[in-house]
Design a protein around this nucleic acid. Structure first.
Lengths: 191, 191
DNA sequence: TCCAATTCGTTTGAGGCCAAACAAAATAGG
DNA sequence: CCTATTTTGTTTGGCCTCAAACGAATTGGA
């Protein structure tokens, strides 16, 4: 499979490149591994359980949120699934066209849209979720239950840190300057 | 910011939904948090250090790999960066067009392509990497160095598990059946 | 009772993302 | 030699992804 260079080798190469610049290694390795693990896990799920159900990771997560919480406003679904509202619009379109999801407008607030699983969506999730959990168990097979808890706990601290202090930090880094626009994205219509 | 439902609430809702079906919760939470943390961290980095340099997460990782290891064959870069070779082709095109990366053919094996940073790429990385590491420190601010090591270690076990046993597992799950093609992707030209 | 400000979901534009199909090159085995 | 087979990077097709722009709807003041 994908063969990576060893941690030790990498550290040495980094040190050689940086020389004097002081680098905090443990944090570097921790963050790198978060991302590597997330990619590996996602890959495995998409190519095992999800492939059979013709679902991408994201569509599964969206279905999961709506399945667990019942009829839900899109803004909550986007937040819970960890995707932008624009992305959600597209994913819902796909799921709706496959007959798994239903979109209804809110009875009293015309801006809101409510999402609900169709019967077919319910049936799919009842079948896929246990298989999904079985893979969660598989990928964490080398961890004890206790270690899983520790892992979840440490990761939660990182999530909380970025969510609670991230925005302030980003502002501080800009130090008054205007944030650069993204390289991609919609441009102003005209001035 | 994004307000999530509490773990406890979620567990309760899941239990209500699943009722009898036995679910391994600690693994579920651990895997969910890996993904949540990866997304949160990536978001923070893209909107802080990387935004200023007009780099996406992936282009940064690609530059980083080539920076650390020097002139490298594309297949190694893709593996190290954790992206598919097709994705790498596109990312390289972007980086090359911005004058940060150079592509040279291998002197003795005509199939290979070698990647190298341009001087401008070198300069950019020398500037961006320390800032990047500072953000790695920021997101792990609530963890001690010891906890960072533990975190990296637990995550590594998950990566190793999926990389060493994932393929076999996926084959076992199929149990002889042909793997379904992806929903998206190139179709056979004609038969 | 307006009318400004806010809060939604959608659209837009550019890029990232993968697997499978593909083409070019190198290697292996007669 | 010369033909399979293998190994590379590239192309393709369909989706995901985000932030900013946008329009529709609601809310808050005066």
């Amino acid at each position: 499979m994908t063969e990576h260079r060893s941690i030790r080798e990498t550290e040495k190469a980094v040190q050689a490149k940086l020389g004097d610049t002081p680098i905090r290694h443990v944090q570097m390795v921790a963050v790198a591994n978060i991302y590597r693990a997330a990619a590996a896990v996602r890959q495995h799920f998409e190519n095992s359980v999800l492939r059979g159900a013709e679902l991408s990771w994201t569509s599964f997560v969206v279905l999961w949120v709506v399945w667990i919480w019942g009829e839900t406003e899109t803004r909550h679904v986007a937040a819970e699934a960890g995707i932008s509202k624009g992305t959600l619009t597209g994913v819902c379109r796909t799921l709706q066209s496959r007959g798994l999801l239903e979109r209804n407008s809110h009875p009293s607030d015309g801006r809101l849209v409510l999402l609900r699983l169709t019967d077919q969506g319910e049936r799919l999730m009842a079948e896929v979720f246990p298989a999904f959990n079985a893979e969660e168990v598989f990928v964490s097979e080398r961890l004890t239950d206790e270690e899983c808890k520790t892992l979840a706990d440490l990761l939660r601290k990182i999530v909380v840190q970025t969510e609670e202090n991230g925005e302030e930090r980003r502002l501080a880094l800009l130090d008054g300057a205007d944030p650069r626009p993204r390289r991609s994205g919609r441009r102003p219509s005209r001035s």
